[in-house]
């Protein structure tokens, strides 16, 4: 008795040549069969090796078109976040939000100054620390401010710089009561950050201090 799919069947499956129904049965078997998963991995690698051998078809101008599309889509994503519409209908990596934010609601986008917006992430923090998205337009400077508690900032898009240097996507900036800074966003794209803010930001300028209570950060 043969308790596994034949080699030819596994190969056809890895090659994407089985129909839906057959493919589903093979997949279901492989879920509980490490032996077949391993053989399927071999057949997938064969696909990769054979792909390498294929002749090159012309893709003239394709790269620039794709980059334009990526730019358009990544901007649209940011808008989706900042209108408070929780982007749905695609895997999390489509919208490039960290998986850690999965299933957390995002509130309405609010104005917090010229070229600056924020949206709250609905998270019940045990210490009342707020979690927000910040979006700051290219070339804009945040008012110089200090902090009344710790503030962690993760850059998701664009970059900002302060006295310490430049923070780009993926960079983590840590502030506390002792730090004051004036982040300036680089030209090009909006700088989008995810920030956890303990206490309140303490703006140094009078105007900023006056409007701050209405902003709520």
């Amino acid at each position: 008795m043969t308790a596994h799919p034949s080699e030819a069947t596994l190969m056809a499956h890895a090659a994407g040549q089985l129909g839906r129904a057959h493919a589903t049965v093979v997949s279901a078997h492989a879920e509980t069969c490490p032996h077949c998963r391993e053989r399927l991995a071999d057949f997938a690698a064969i696909g990769g090796v054979l792909l390498e051998e294929l002749p090159l078809a012309s893709m003239a101008g394709g790269f620039d078109r794709l980059i334009e599309r990526i730019d358009r889509e990544e901007n649209a994503v940011v808008e989706a976040v900042f209108t408070g519409a929780r982007p749905r209908g695609g895997p999390a990596d489509d919208i490039r939000l960290p998986a850690a934010l999965d299933r957390l609601p995002v509130g309405r986008c609010r104005w917090m100054g010229p070229g600056m917006k924020y949206a709250r992430v609905g998270i019940a923090d045990e210490n009342g620390v707020q979690l927000v998205f910040l979006s700051i337009a290219p070339g804009r400077a945040m008012p110089e401010h200090g902090h009344s508690g710790r503030e962690f900032t993760l850059v998701l898009q664009g970059s900002f710089g302060d006295a310490r240097g430049r923070f780009v996507a993926g960079d983590f900036a840590e502030e506390d009561e002792d730090t004051e800074h004036t982040p300036v966003v680089a030209a090009g794209v909006d700088c989008i950050c995810l920030a956890s803010i303990e206490g309140r930001m303490r703006p140094r300028s009078l105007v900023a201090r006056l409007v701050q209570p209405f902003i709520g950060l």
Partner: peptide, 25 residues
């Protein structure tokens, strides 16, 4: 995903697997 991802749970390294596959072909 219509078919299984090409990620087995063995320790067989990708470069090792591709070398084997090339030799076998």
């Amino acid at each position: 995903e219509p078919v299984d991802p090409a990620t087995p749970d063995t320790a067989l390294q990708a470069d090792e697997r591709e070398r084997r596959v090339r030799d076998a072909i």
